[in-house]
Simulated scan of single mutants.
Amino acid sequence: MSETPLLRLFDGLAKGDIAAVRACFSPEAVIWHGFDGIALNVEDFLCSMEGLIGYTAERWIQDVHSLVTAEGLVQQHVFVVHTQAGDRKAWYVCIVAKIADGLITRVDEYIDRAGFFVPANAF
């Protein structure tokens, strides 16, 4: 699978590189959360990602499955973090992304933030 804006986004998060994350989005992009029904603009999303980066020592995705659609792609993956306190946590995630000209214009993120699990193979 060729690199997608979503894979670049998660690579940027893994590196703690907010500028790389920002570069994945069109300026007018919307990021919607299924867990709270709130839609964020890019700057608000980046603020929340800065918080995530501060809370975690490491972040990555694994078990990535993507399906290209007419408007972008659907991606399922496991999002894994090691917190600053040393805890390991993971969540199953599904993202529906609209992409235009190589940039994300909309993300619908489906994740149960309360439903984390401790991954057995996340080292």
Rank of each mutant, 00 (worst) to 15 (best):
3 E>S: 07
5 P>R: 07
5 P>C: 09
8 R>C: 01
8 R>H: 05
8 R>V: 01
9 L>N: 09
9 L>Q: 14
11 D>W: 02
11 D>A: 09
13 L>R: 12
15 K>F: 00
16 G>N: 09
16 G>D: 07
20 A>Y: 05
21 V>T: 08
22 R>G: 05
22 R>W: 03
23 A>R: 05
23 A>F: 03
24 C>S: 15
24 C>K: 11
25 F>A: 14
25 F>G: 15
26 S>W: 07
28 E>H: 14
28 E>P: 13
29 A>D: 07
30 V>E: 15
31 I>L: 15
31 I>Q: 13
32 W>Q: 11
32 W>G: 06
32 W>F: 15
34 G>K: 05
34 G>W: 05
35 F>W: 15
36 D>V: 10
36 D>M: 08
36 D>Y: 07
37 G>A: 10
38 I>L: 14
40 L>N: 15
41 N>D: 15
43 E>N: 11
43 E>L: 03
45 F>M: 02
46 L>H: 12
49 M>T: 01
50 E>D: 02
51 G>M: 04
51 G>N: 14
52 L>N: 12
53 I>M: 10
53 I>Y: 06
54 G>A: 09
55 Y>I: 07
55 Y>W: 10
58 E>V: 02
58 E>T: 09
59 R>N: 12
59 R>K: 06
60 W>H: 13
60 W>S: 03
61 I>S: 06
61 I>C: 11
62 Q>N: 01
62 Q>S: 02
63 D>K: 00
64 V>R: 01
64 V>N: 01
66 S>E: 11
66 S>Q: 13
67 L>I: 12
68 V>C: 03
69 T>Y: 14
70 A>E: 09
70 A>H: 09
71 E>A: 04
74 V>P: 07
77 H>S: 02
77 H>I: 02
78 V>A: 02
78 V>T: 14
79 F>Q: 00
79 F>T: 02
82 H>S: 07
82 H>Y: 08
83 T>I: 01
83 T>C: 00
85 A>N: 05
85 A>R: 11
85 A>L: 06
86 G>W: 01
86 G>R: 03
86 G>Y: 03
88 R>Y: 00
89 K>G: 10
90 A>F: 04
92 Y>D: 14
92 Y>P: 15
93 V>H: 01
93 V>P: 03
93 V>S: 04
94 C>Q: 07
94 C>D: 04
96 V>E: 08
96 V>C: 06
97 A>T: 14
99 I>E: 12
102 G>R: 15
102 G>H: 10
102 G>K: 03
103 L>T: 00
104 I>A: 08
104 I>K: 11
106 R>Y: 09
106 R>K: 11
106 R>S: 06
106 R>T: 02
107 V>E: 15
107 V>I: 14
107 V>N: 09
112 D>T: 07
112 D>Y: 10
112 D>F: 08
112 D>G: 12
113 R>H: 08
113 R>E: 03
114 A>M: 10
114 A>W: 08
